[in-house]
Design a protein around this nucleic acid. Structure first.
Length: 335
DNA sequence: GAACCGTGGCA
DNA sequence: TTGCCAAGGTT
C-alpha cells in the first residue's frame, strides 16, 4: 500500500518516509514513523542536557514575561547582543504592567541598537494589551499570544512551549535548518517556511508534552551551536549518524539564492540614523539635527515620514521631533 | 508571496 | 573587504 492509493489510510512505506515532507501526513503517526522520529529525540535531548547554554531567559526566575521579552529581542538579533539589553530591560520593567505604564518612546530608547525598533513598539503594545486584557499576566494560550502585537506563529509557539511547557512545533531558523539537513537531506531550508516544513515539524514532535517542550529547545539549540548555517560541526552532532544530508555527502544548496539584504543607502539606513539621534537626545530635537544625518533631502524626508507613520517618531510644533509619548499631542486650541 | 523593516560581527 | 547571517512579523 502506498500513500497514493489509500489517502484515507496512513502511508506505511519503509522507514525514512516520515522524512518525505510531500507525503500526506496523518494526524497520528503510525508506529514505524513514530519509532523513526524517536531515534532522533533521545540523542538530541541528552546532548541538550550537557550543552545547553545558561541563558537568563531559561532560568526559572525569568518567568513568562522574561521569555516573552527575550523572544522579541531575539527576532533577527544574535544572542550576544541581546544579553545586556535584556538584563537592563527586566530590571527596569520586571512585569508587563511596568512597561505598559511607560511611554512607548522609552521602550524605543531602551531598545538601543538591537535593530528593528518597531519590535520595541510592539513589545510595549503587547505589554499594554496584557495589562488590559489579561490581568497583567502573559497568556499561556497560543491563540491569545498570537493576537498580541509583534507575536507571530513562531513567537506564540515559543512562549507557550518555553514558558508554559506546552507541546507546539517551534519552527525558527535554527530548527528549520536542523530539520532540512537531518530529515530532508538538504543544506538549507526554503526561503519561506512551507506547509511541508510545518508538517514535518509536527511529525517529529514528541507525543509527551514536557518532552515536546524540551525537544523544541533542544533542536533549536542544536541549530544554534552545532548545525550552524556556515560551519556545521558534524563531529559534535549527536545525530550525525542519522543525518540525511551528511549521509548523502552534504550536497551543496542548489535552489534559488538565499535572499540577501542590501542595506547601504537604503531608507532603512536613513531611518536608523534618524532614530539614533532621537534615542540619544533627552529632549525634543530640532529638524536641523535630523537633517545633518543624511544628505539627500528627498530620501531623508521619506524616511522621517515613515518613522512618524510607524509611530516611532512624534512630530511637534516648530519643527521639533521626539520619541513617542503615547499621549496625543494636545492640539493648539483657543479657549 | 514578496518587500520592507536595523545593526553589527565574522569568515 | 564584503557578503552572509542572526530565536521574525507585518503589510
Amino acid at each position: 500500500m502506498t500513500a497514493t492509493d489509500a489517502p484515507s489510510e496512513a502511508p506505511v512505506p519503509a522507514s525514512s518516509e516520515f522524512l518525505d515532507a510531500e507525503a500526506p501526513t496523518p494526524d497520528v503517526l503510525d508506529a514505524p514513523q513514530a519509532d523513526e522520529a524517536a531515534l532522533l529525540h533521545a540523542p538530541v535531548l541528552a546532548w541538550f542536557e550537557q550543552h545547553a547554554r545558561d541563558l537568563p531567559w531559561r532560568r526559572p526566575e525569568a518567568g513568562a514575561w522574561g521569555v516573552m521579552v527575550s523572544e522579541f529581542m531575539l527576532q533577527q538579533t544574535p544572542v550576544a547582543r541581546v544579553l545586556p539589553v535584556y538584563e537592563q530591560w527586566l530590571a527596569r520593567w520586571p512585569r508587563p504592567a511596568d512597561l505598559a505604564a511607560e511611554a512607548p518612546g522609552e521602550a524605543v530608547r531602551a531598545w538601543g541598537r538591537l535593530g528593528y525598533p518597531r519590535r520595541a513598539l510592539r513589545l510595549h503594545g503587547a505589554a499594554v494589551a496584557i495589562t488590559e486584557r489579561h490581568g497583567g499576566d502573559v497568556p499561556s494560550d497560543h491563540g491569545q499570544l498570537l493576537a498580541l502585537p509583534g507575536i507571530g506563529e513562531y513567537t506564540a509557539a515559543a512562549v507557550a512551549s518555553f514558558a508554559y511547557g506546552q507541546r507546539h512545533a517551534v519552527l525558527d531558523t535554527n530548527v528549520r535548518r536542523v530539520f532540512a539537513r537531518a530529515a530532508t537531506g538538504i543544506q538549507y531550508p526554503p526561503n519561506a517556511t512551507t506547509a511541508a516544513e510545518r508538517r514535518l515539524a509536527r511529525a517529529l514532535l514528541p507525543a509527551d508534552e514536557p518532552t515536546a517542550a524540551h525537544w523544541a529547545a533542544a533542536s533549536m539549540e542544536l541549530g544554534a551551536l552545532v548545525c550552524t548555517a556556515r560551519n556545521e560541526a558534524c563531529e559534535r552532532c549527536p545525530i550525525a549518524s542519522r543525518c540525511a544530508w551528511r549521509l548523502s555527502g552534504k550536497p551543496a544548496h542548489d535552489g534559488p539564492p538565499r535572499r540577501g539584504q542590501t542595506y547601504a543607502g537604503t531608507d532603512r539606513q536613513v531611518r536608523g540614523r534618524l532614530l539614533a539621534v532621537l534615542r540619544e537626545a533627552p529632549s525634543p530635537v530640532p529638524q536641523a539635527a535630523l537633517d545633518a544625518v543624511w544628505a539627500d533631502p528627498v530620501q531623508r524626508a521619506r524616511a522621517l515620514d515613515g518613522l512618524v507613520a510607524d509611530g516611532l517618531v512624534e512630530p511637534l510644533a516648530q519643527g521639533m521631533y521626539r520619541l513617542p509619548t503615547g499621549r496625543p499631542v494636545r492640539p493648539a486650541t483657543h479657549s
